[in-house]
Design a protein around this nucleic acid. Structure first.
Ligand SMILES: [Mn+2]
Ligand SMILES: [Mn+2]
Ligand SMILES: [Zn+2]
Ligand SMILES: [Zn+2]
Lengths: 153, 153
DNA sequence: ACCAATTCTGGACTTAGTCAAGTATTTGCC
DNA sequence: GGCAAATACTTGACTAAGTCCAGAATTGGT
């Protein structure tokens, strides 16, 4: 459970540092965390880390495909280590809860757009918006539209 | 072409103001624009507008379902008036170009997740990531992962 | 024309993230 | 094990996108 993370890092061509190990651990115990939440988690485990190290590391790991970044409308970036399993996300418009949801369309699915404009598509990111069991009946007038952090007035 | 916008506003329960008309016009002539771009556009047409008015108006219109906000990872929020036609988006990881793409799954499609965790889903937002015709061969090593504004080093 | 409700403005403020220069750590090699 | 080059981390200033608030202006109904 300790060497695991080291191995993962080396296998992906990373140098092994206390910070990276801690971030990866934080990530696995706290899915869909923000950079700040991860930083806090890491500080609890190894004492301190700079914001920059957190962002650098997460950025590199995303680039290498070790982790995934998602950023739904109105949310700050979130990170997770569930990768390559083609799962999607379901978000409650009212309470912002975010849950994983398996892809309905098979295994490497969803990669089927109509006219692809000549693009080479390598990922289909799906976010389902709606209301969670606890939040039904609360909001949602005529047309919910899309607005996490709603307007004034 | 002028009263149109007024009508649309009233039909959706908005008071009609110069700012709102201008924003709606800007929007229709400039799809996927950012708040700032819209502000600039509006200033060109009616002289001036406050940042707050732009954000307030866009927020309200999104809430009422008159327009749509999208915010792909690494991008600032973008707005569009194509709404209720269930179209999706295709983004080039290299040059950030963003194009509309019709949904392959039918008409009110995509609203089919596996286990929906008891949520009432009202929208499935899909973003296809890849490389546009002009950008192929440029980047994309082993696993593209996902990273619009990449990392340092 | 008048009033209440709504909207707009200006300016301070916050949050998430980036940049850049210097210091520390890791790793491959002897 | 010790060294040096490469890589990573820290610190602090900075930017971009968006929000908050209080007061002034506009709108729509009578
Ligand atoms: Mn997930
Ligand atoms: Mn579009
Ligand atoms: Zn909820
Ligand atoms: Zn491109």
């Amino acid at each position: 459970m300790s060497e695991d993370v080291e191995q993962t890092l080396r296998q992906h061509g990373f140098q092994v540092t206390a910070q990276r190990i801690a971030i990866l651990r934080a990530l696995s115990s706290h899915p869909h965390a923000t950079a700040d939440e991860l930083a806090a988690d890491v500080r609890a485990s190894i004492g301190s880390i700079s914001r920059q190290a957190v962002y650098d590391t997460l950025g590199l790991m995303v680039d290498k495909g070790l982790i995934r970044r998602i950023q739904p409308s109105g949310f700050t970036a979130r990170y997770e280590d569930r990768v390559n399993d083609n799962h999607h996300h379901l978000i409650c418009r009212s309470c912002d809860s975010l849950v994983d949801i398996d892809c309905a369309t098979g295994d490497t699915p969803c990669l089927s757009a109509g006219d692809d404009h000549g693009f080479v598509i390598d990922e289909a990111e799906v976010i389902y918006w709606g209301y969670c069991p606890a939040c039904r009946g609360k909001a949602a007038p005529a047309k919910p539209g899309s607005s996490p952090k709603s307007s004034t007035t």
